[in-house]
């Protein structure tokens, strides 16, 4: 079970990394495209927490 959660969080971390990169790229090419609907700060807060849990 512990291994399952670890692997899942690791995959989540990779997916969140990709999401941050994609959303940031979209926001750069067209300001407001993402921020109008979704606050990237939540992602930026959640992503390192997942990363820390994975490392620990």
């Amino acid at each position: 079970m512990k291994l399952f959660i670890h692997n899942f969080l690791q995959e989540l971390f990779y997916a969140l990394t990709g999401a941050i990169l994609i959303f940031t790229f979209l926001e750069i090419i067209s300001p407001g495209m993402v921020l109008a609907y979704f606050n990237l700060n939540y992602l930026l807060l959640f992503w390192p927490i997942i990363g820390i849990i994975v490392v620990l």
Partner: peptide, 29 residues
């Protein structure tokens, strides 16, 4: 964890991120 389950989870998470990006682009265009 079986490798197949891992791949399914990976596909699901990345698909969610790409679909979200697609939705943002749809709302922009």
């Amino acid at each position: 964890m079986p490798k197949r389950v891992l791949i399914i989870i990976r596909i699901f998470l990345w698909l969610a991120a790409v679909m979200a990006a697609g939705w943002f682009m749809y709302m922009k265009i």
